[in-house]
Design a protein around this nucleic acid. Sequence first.
RNA 1: GCGGCUGUGAUCUAGCUGGUUAGGAUAGGGGCUUCCCAAGCCUCUUGCCCGGGUUCGAAUCCCGGCAGCCGCACCA
Length: 562
Amino acid sequence: MWEKVLAVAKRRGFLWPAFDIYGGLRGFYDYGPLGTELKKNIIEIWREYYVLTEGFAEIDSPNLSPEMVFRASGHLDKFEDYMTVCGECGAAFRADNLVSAENADSLGAEDLWYEMRKERIRCPECGGELTKPEPFNLMFRTSIGPKGKKERVGYLRPETAQAMFMDFQHLYRYFREKLPFGAVQIGEGFRNEISPRQGLLRLREFNMAEAEIFFDPEDKIWPGFERYRDDEVLLLPNTGDELQISLGDAVKRGIIKSEALAYFVGLTRSFLLKIGIDRKKLRFREHLADEMAHYADECWDAEVLLSYGWVEVVGIADRTDYDLSRHMEFSGENLKAVRRYAEPREVEVSEVVPDFKKLGPLFKGDAKKVADALRAMNSDTLKGDVALEIDGREYVVPEDSYRVEKVRKKVSGEEFIPHVIEPSYGIDRILYAVMEHNYHEIEEGGETYRILRLPAPVAPVKAGVFPLVPKDGLDEKARLIYENLRKARINAFYDDSGSIGRRYARMDEIGTPFCITVDYHSLEDDTVTIRFRDTKEQVRVGTDRVAVEIADLIEKGGCTAP
RNA sequence: GCGGCUGUGAUCUAGCUGGUUAGGAUAGGGGCUUCCCAAGCCUCUUGCCCGGGUUCGAAUCCCGGCAGCCGCACCA
């Protein structure tokens, strides 16, 4: 099946293997003119959901990041696996899975190699000799800046998400310090897959659309949940069997842990159906504990049934406070939000008050550093002389150079690290799925007739415009209609070659929902026919009404006569 | 990365026990014809995955690479 879909995609200009004239390279595709348009339309509808409807803020950040970002995000550690290969049968294994040491996954190449030899580990498949473990990271590494001292290690991002965490402070302020809010980013991600396969399903450079929704972990009630509460979804929880259930009930029964997460399951489902995913071939599967990403606490994948089997197209993960905490730790910046009280409260807190009259003479220029360190200590347990270590130097602070005081303070709120829910969409996979789910073959007189039944809003070409025959002024009239459609920002396609049937067929194959034909009748009463892809029905409308009608039909999304 | 199968115009394919200008169909362009669903006629365009070897001569045999499919492994 995918061969057929990809064959049409290639022939008609949706997708081409990249670098084709040099033999191609696995895991890279070019989008042709129709594919680019289709992708654009899918992304535009995604924006309608996330940016226009939800009011989330879209940002756009670099593809290339300095190393520290992925130290903080965990991608460098968690994703640097050590691979060992069998010299006999060629099977590859993760070295840390073979050795019995408890901390195996944190060992380096040398230690793993030592362990492997100590335990006399051989190939679990055939008993052959294994090679020394080699680090393997799925991120593309490069260097930033000129060679030499100023050179820095950089990586192409494996997800767009990190920028939204790093920009948290800006975003928080942008949203007037109110939670929940969301940020989105649409862009490329890069993963150096060992073995890309199956067309668009595993690319090394791919398009993703991600949203990060920041919220107060004590308040996972989601304001707009009503919108999807009664939607029936097919769920596959990690604890039991597949079930059809409304999202409201799924939350009530604890199958999905929060309304917030369930909301994005509902939103995702609505989006996927709108762009043409077959509702019978869509389910949401909960990750098993051991397949969860290092940052996730709960994760539901939207999966679509393709000829390859069930394929993940969207991951909706509860990333908790993992990312913000890590970036706080690695950057030293404060990435917290404030939970404001209705009324500022008076609270009594104990505080360390350094006595500079004593500290000054004692520590001279270091006095301020010492005082800061003192203030940072737990005032409840502080007593007596205090030994401090700052920047490798030891200080002993005598008991009489500070005091602990109870202070009454006005507190207007408390700080906390927001939690994050992340719906992450693989655009390329979705685009392929939309094509496959809408690809139909009809046998007609021994010939195979292909129709791509794309919903009108995603179809790359909205309308074909034809003169029934290219003479007697029919062609001029058709060209005029074509021009008018384009002026109305409707992507139309003019064609006067060959027979009318052939032209309809061409449009059907690329998923064009409507065809407008100028016939001899048009010359008399200034009407033309609109032909509907899915039913081949035709209706007549006035020439001056065409652009409005088509715009209206696209809006409605259907592809049959009204 | 390993193993199996495979690679001929845009697509499907013939040729592949080595031997002239690689044949067909579909698609595509131009023209004729045509009053609504791949009709017909004329005409034209595009190809042996890449590199090396064997040979007088390679699409054909051998080696390597690249790519595709399937299986294994991997997949934050």
